[in-house]
């Protein structure tokens, strides 16, 4: 690893000031499970590392019954240890738990997963399915960006020089909703998603779908939402036929590439399979919570 300066500011303002001065050669360190690998393998050379794990706001983990405020540096292990969250956001927790091993979970944060902007990031489709927002502090102002608009390409985000992702705001889905996240990997663990599917559906008293969100990972330069699949679901009872239609739309929306992890045709195929399967799980969860 090449030489760099390390700072561990105590406030958001200090962090933003450091990043602004760093002028593109600075990077935020949260769990380090992507960043340190990138520096070690020479993918990234930086002059300044800003460790944000001493800032109270980035370590916040609060759920008030309607919104989860998740600090950008909170490790996945802490999310899992929270008593209430699994009941409210089972799909999101599944996604967060899939990131790496227990060792990685102890350090890796959802904020880092979002900022690393890998097309295969596990939490991103799950967050998109829940309509989560990114709260960004900057030298001028604080702004909020939906997760689905945060990444602009592989490794690229809307963050400007000096900006810092402080927290994610994840709204609890309304009564009668269920979310789910599934990914496919060749191994059972320790793998990168070949495809990931995050979904959230809401059912009314009659079991009719009133709202649906479908998001896919690893089938395009960024995670994508699939509005056509969502439209195919709303108004149905989420039966086999509706799920198959949504899966069809997911396949159609996927724009995957061939790479060492899988050929494009296979990813496209999986987009359908995982959409159908995750929707079935989400539907069952929604029915139990109707």
């Amino acid at each position: 690893m090449k030489s760099f300066r390390y700072e561990a500011p105590r406030t958001v303002e200090e962090a933003v000031a450091l990043l602004a001065k760093g002028n593109g050669d600075a990077r935020v360190l949260a769990g380090g499970t992507d960043l340190i690998v990138q520096m070690r393998t020479g993918v990234r050379h930086l002059r300044l590392i800003v460790d944000v794990k001493r800032i109270p706001e980035t370590l916040r983990l609060e759920f008030d019954g309607t919104v989860l405020r998740l600090g950008a540096a909170v490790p996945c292990a802490a999310i899992r240890e929270h008593r209430e969250l699994r009941r409210i956001f089972p799909g999101f927790l599944e996604a967060a738990e899939l990131i790496g091993s227990e060792q990685i979970q102890g350090r890796a944060s959802v904020g880092g997963n979002v900022c690393n902007a890998s097309p295969a990031a596990d939490t991103v489709p799950a967050l998109i399915a829940l309509g989560a927002e990114c709260v960004i502090a900057g030298p001028e102002r604080t702004r909020s960006v939906p997760v689905e608009a945060f990444a602009t390409g592989p490794g690229e985000t809307v963050l400007q020089t000096g900006e810092l992702l402080v927290e994610l705001r994840i709204p609890a889905p309304p009564t009668g909703s269920g979310d789910a996240y599934l990914r496919f990997t060749p191994r059972t663990e320790m793998d990168i998603a070949v495809v990931g599917a995050g979904v959230c559906v809401t059912l009314d008293g009659e079991g009719r779908c009133t709202a649906a969100r479908v998001a896919l990972g690893a089938v395009a330069p960024t995670a994508i939402r699939v509005p056509a699949a969502e439209e195919a679901l709303v108004g149905t009872d989420l039966g086999t036929e509706a799920l198959e239609l949504a899966a069809e739309e997911a396949r159609a929306a996927a724009r995957p590439i061939d790479d060492l992890r899988a050929p494009a045709w296979y990813r496209r195929h999986l987009a359908g399979v995982l959409t159908r399967r995750s929707l079935a799980i989400a539907r069952d969860r929604a029915m139990r919570r109707a």
């Binding site: 769990g31 380090g32 499970t33 340190i36 690998v37 460790d51 060792q103 990685i104 979970q105 350090r107």
Partner: peptide, 8 residues
Amino acid sequence: LACACLVL
């Protein structure tokens, strides 16, 4: 738990 190789 953590991997010491991924901690500065």
